[in-house]
């Protein structure tokens, strides 16, 4: 649209509109890559441990569950591990994730394609999982009886959580949101870091990630079921004492 007759100095800059690439400027590359990585380790790795290892012990009964809690509580510098291995990474991943969400412009209405829906879903599941994790940590780890001091009360405390219908629902929704966010997050990680480069490779890997989602969800749901089908266990300090000594067997012991 510039006139060819009057050679004006090139003063017309883009008044509004998207700025061009700022080559060589800023730290967003590092932060974005850290965000992406933190979702896999330590946050994702912790999720796998929490659901597939620790929670799954509930399926072996209150005893096994209490022992797992006792073992975790006995790890050296447990508070330090929790803070720097779990809480701070989750906080960074979530807060920086909200910042990314805020700056993007979802457009699934105009362009309702699968990848675009996943993009939006990844943001919502992240929000739900974060809200759930915040409530879950406060409710189970900090409010009420301290399970690090009384691991024996763990099973009963979780059962009392599930006794309230909306809390049980929140656990289920939180579990599904977190495992979806993690499973699709692995897929995104591999695409963005150039591990799955080809189209076919990405499609195959999506199947793997869906298997991961179903595995984590299924184990989580089965663990929840164990809490619901086992008779109510004590959830006070006395239960902690009970399990501190070799506990009385709950099932008939195999004598041979």
């Amino acid at each position: 649209m510039a006139s060819r007759v009057s050679p004006q100095p090139e003063t017309h800059t883009i008044a509004a509109g998207v700025a061009p690439l700022r080559a060589g400027q800023g730290h967003s590359f590092l932060l974005r890559r850290l965000h992406s990585l933190s979702g896999i380790v330590p946050v994702g790795a912790f999720l796998v441990e929490h659901i597939l290892v620790s929670n799954a012990t509930a399926m072996n009964g209150p005893e096994a569950y209490a022992n797992q809690v006792k073992f975790l509580a006995s790890l050296p510098m447990v508070l330090f591990l929790e803070a720097f291995g779990i809480w701070l990474p989750i906080l960074f991943h979530a807060l920086y994730g909200f910042y990314i969400w805020y700056r993007g412009d979802g457009n699934t209405i105009s362009y309702p394609w699968q990848g675009n829906w996943m993009y939006t879903l990844q943001r919502w599941t992240g929000l739900i999982a974060f809200a759930y994790i915040g409530w879950h940590v406060w409710h189970l780890r900090f409010a009420g009886i301290d399970l690090h001091a009384h691991p024996g009360a763990s099973f009963g405390k979780v059962q009392s959580e599930f006794a309230v219908a909306w809390q049980l629902a929140f656990y289920v929704v939180g579990l599904l949101a977190a495992s979806w966010h993690f499973a699709y997050g692995i897929w995104l990680f591999c695409a963005k870091w150039g591990i799955t480069v080809g189209e076919r490779a990405r499609q195959r890997f999506l199947v793997v990630c869906m298997v991961i989602f179903f595995t984590i969800s299924a184990v989580g749901l089965l663990s929840i079921r164990s809490f619901l089908t086992t008779p109510r266990q004590p959830a006070d300090a006395s239960a902690g004492e009970l399990h501190a000594k070799p506990a009385p067997p709950t099932a008939p012991v195999d004598k041979k």
Binding site: G115, M118, A191, K192
Partner: peptide, 30 residues
């Protein structure tokens, strides 16, 4: 690697859907 660089991609894959020349854009990004 600068601000506004490749890391801003959220892998929504709309680009590869819309491209009139069928350029494998998500493969390029990966």
């Amino acid at each position: 690697m600068g601000d506004g660089g490749i890391h801003e991609c959220g892998y929504a894959q709309n680009c590869v859907e819309i491209c009139p020349k069928d350029i494998p854009l998500t493969k390029a990004i990966a």
